[in-house]
Design a protein around this nucleic acid. Structure first.
Lengths: 152, 152
DNA sequence: TATATTTGTATCGTGCACGATTTAAACTTG
DNA sequence: CAAGTTTAAATCGTGCACGATACAAATATA
């Protein structure tokens, strides 16, 4: 029982540092993304679209582990900001295909320096070795989350 | 330049798996916290209050790396759910002191099994070794974030 | 080929996060 | 001690997250 009570201390939670560091890192992006006029989740959508020109909402959702009820309004905002286009698929009228406008494509040149700048910022909080180890573990977890439906 | 373009691929982002895993883990808590009728950030406030009976809003904010503009409405919801009490400090009228109601104190017994249940759930996604290593790195980052104002 | 089921988006409501601003109390300084 | 500054909460507005529900198109089944 004493051990279980100890497990309820904030410092012993696994989840909490994950939650706090995630927000901390997102905050590091803010000034860089402000220059593009996008939010952090919108930036993730841009990363997806820079890898694939035309992609259905559903597929973006799967890549980012988000639901369409989060993405639909987010994509509408990006559309009204002139960054992306939304059009219905010809072959399946249910599907909405997302693509970049010339403006959205142009953002890639501005964004090219962001990853390096962010690594510099993270140097204030961690070593590159630690960041690398952490990323490897997180990727493993995400990978298992994609494949392990038996377990959840 | 080719290297910089590679860095813009989603799979090469540090931030993204952090963001996605953070949400994934929070989702694992949901069914457990539903039994208490609290959200995940509210659960974090409970963890703080189980360690310290009476605590100002500001101090909770510092422990959880949140702003008071996030906490004030959250605490009001917890108050109207009968979990906590809010009262002005006698010695400093600016300060609002948060404390648990008997109901909030009683939640601790119900919550005592949550950490173990969560570890079990995480076993589906990761090894305990990896979780331990990750937590150590995340704690280091948080620690540096608390102390390094020169760098940000 | 009607009917039922599944699938991809969209809509709605609640609760965070967080920047910006406001307010009142406490503190500092001239 | 009066004026300016700092500090702790609160308020406001915007944008996620996400559960629940709706709806229409596509598919499966009777």
């Amino acid at each position: 029982m004493a051990e279980k009570a100890t497990q309820l201390k904030l410092e012993n939670q696994i989840c909490f540092p994950l939650y706090a560091v995630s927000r901390l890192v997102t905050q590091q992006y803010k000034p860089l993304l402000d220059e593009l006029g996008v939010t952090y989740p919108q930036y993730l959508v841009l990363l997806v679209l820079w890898e694939k020109e035309e992609i259905p909402v559903k597929e973006i959702a799967q890549k980012l582990f988000l639901e369409t009820n989060t993405l639909t309004p987010l994509l509408k905002r990006m559309q009204s900001n002139g960054i992306i286009e939304r059009k219905r698929s010809k072959t399946d009228e249910r599907v909405v295909i997302i693509s970049l406008t010339p403006i959205g494509k142009g953002f890639k040149n501005k964004a090219i320096e962001i990853p390096n700048k962010l690594v510099q910022k993270l140097d204030c909080f961690s070593t590159e070795e630690d960041v690398f180890v952490m990323k490897r573990i997180l990727d493993k977890i995400l990978n298992n989350a994609e494949n392990n439906e038996t377990c959840g």
